[in-house]
Design a protein around this nucleic acid. Structure first.
Lengths: 148, 148
DNA sequence: GTAGACCTTGCCGCCGACGTCAACGCCAGC
DNA sequence: GCTGGCGTTGACGTCGGCGGCAAGGTCTAC
């Protein structure tokens, strides 16, 4: 099949496929007219790439999986190099998630503190950490007033 | 003080300060020689900016906080606009964290499955997780042979 | 034979937050 | 006066993953 058909089947664009080829990730054979030609296996490789991309993998990180499939293995993660990428990504994910959770806590407590201060119009240094937001629900008409 | 001193005090670079000024976030007064001049309040605004940046806020999102401080409020989040940013960031953080946790689950289960499959078909090490590369390099030499 | 649907290569644009020159001005000390 | 360490503006580079456009080639249908 030609590039447009593959793009349609995979839900991507021809621009993306040319980009993958330029990166050496998904090279195409060429017809006599110079057109790129793909087959069903390429569609499979492409699905593998897109799946990992959806997971947040960088293109380079999908390469071991693609190579693995091309080497004839049943799935892209049937090779040690792919497993290594999995493990590295897991560690990265854990680190990022932990970091984001810490930030979430900080922002959350800052919001709680600031809400109390604003509603009381009092300077810093609140009381303890009992940041319960029962100040007065009918405040200034904010909240999800709908303005986005 | 001049730009270099402020940069040093805030642990950032002169390039960054000039960038903030170009964005209208932290404008500087000018001396007779054209040099930027900053005071202690600017240092405070800068600290606010860097704190939020560390939280992953975009520069534009720090603007309400800076404006709030400049308006004379005790802290950058003493204004409704800042609280709105807090709330939006919290929602974003929750969404991102949830998404990443889902991805983490998926990747984790894929890894577990693939590890079982690999060890079943091509048992490199009949042990558990001894990921030590002392396994005798002359195993089956597939693919790139495990150079890392 | 001509429209038009596909394909080709090539190259610039984009986003965010700066880094990194280049070429020059200002000022203090020796 | 000269060196060196500050400062100034301007402009291009970076990173990833493409989007979009131009100028042309190819194939098919009518």
């Amino acid at each position: 099949m030609r590039i447009g058909e593959l793009a349609r089947k995979a839900g991507t664009t021809t621009r993306t496929l040319r980009y993958y080829e330029a990166r050496g990730l998904l090279p195409a054979r060429r017809g006599e007219n110079g057109y790129r030609r793909y087959d069903e296996e390429d569609l499979r490789l492409l699905h593998q790439i897109r799946l990992l991309q959806d997971f947040g993998f960088e293109l380079e990180e999908t390469r071991p999986f693609v190579d693995c499939l091309r080497a004839g293995h049943p799935s892209g993660d049937s090779c040690p190099a792919s497993l290594e990428v999995y493990r590295r990504k897991l560690a990265e994910l854990d680190a990022v998630i932990e970091r984001l959770q810490q930030v979430r806590e900080q922002v959350g407590s800052q919001l709680a503190r600031a809400e109390v201060e604003v509603s009381a119009e009092t300077p810093p240094v609140p009381r303890c950490e009992l940041t319960e937001v029962q100040v007065d629900a009918s405040e200034r008409g904010e909240g999800d007033g709908g303005d986005d």
